[in-house]
Design a binder for these strands. Sequence first.
DNA 1: CTTAAAAGTTTACCAGTGTAATCTACTGAA
DNA 2: TTCAGTAGATTACACTGGTAAACTTTTAAG
Lengths: 125, 125
Amino acid sequence: MNDLAGKIQDAELEVMRVLWEKADAMSLIDIRKILSDRCGWEDSTIKTLLRRLLDKGIVRLEKRGVYSPVVTRDEYIQWSTHTFINKIFSGSAKNLVATLVSNEQLDEKDIKELSAMFNAGEKNE
Amino acid sequence: MNDLAGKIQDAELEVMRVLWEKADAMSLIDIRKILSDRCGWEDSTIKTLLRRLLDKGIVRLEKRGVYSPVVTRDEYIQWSTHTFINKIFSGSAKNLVATLVSNEQLDEKDIKELSAMFNAGEKNE
DNA sequence: CTTAAAAGTTTACCAGTGTAATCTACTGAA
DNA sequence: TTCAGTAGATTACACTGGTAAACTTTTAAG
């Protein structure tokens, strides 16, 4: 799924979040329950969104009334991060992080923890 | 410009890139030259995009035929980074960076350099 | 077997976007 | 003063996305 089969739209993403929260396949009933509550959407809206996700191959119909994600949350995160960095930082993840640091979107505590990660990673060099 | 006055669209962003590349205000002539070359757009397309940017308050008409950005590149980068992190990482910049590290979107060299930044920042704690 | 409820399908409608043609208004040069 | 060439404004048109109604098919319960 290189272009994520045409991108997950904002409203569709809301549906995916629900599916991703559950490890298993989910019934329309449960999906509806959560989404009508969380987003105030009508039944038909939810069905439309699921249909679009099916069409894009992002979701699969396990059996009548039961859906499960084809694209995993991790895949999506990775893809969207990649896309974002390309668009805004010309593909340089480093520049992104440097920007975060100078804009203080990472606090002292974050930096400590990340430093630890970095140093851990550095050992196999 | 909290919501960046209704968001800069992809095609519009291409126009902004041109304006941002130059410190000064730019003439339509120069904008057109670059964009028709870079994107293969017709004259009218470029004028439409500039109009939309004007309407959104993202660009200003300095005088007849001369445009300059109202939103700076840095503002845009900051805003879009913020928006992205909210959408995908529930607002946690740290999680973003952690993901970059585990997905190896940062290489050893990047990490070294960033570590240095981090350590430099850590002194005033 | 019949039927109501749930699921799936078709159609709709508006705003926004990518892309552009055309028409109108200025303005500087002759 | 007039006119050609820019610049700006209006209109267009197809496609997508957010939101949903209405219609059709399937299925489980009685």
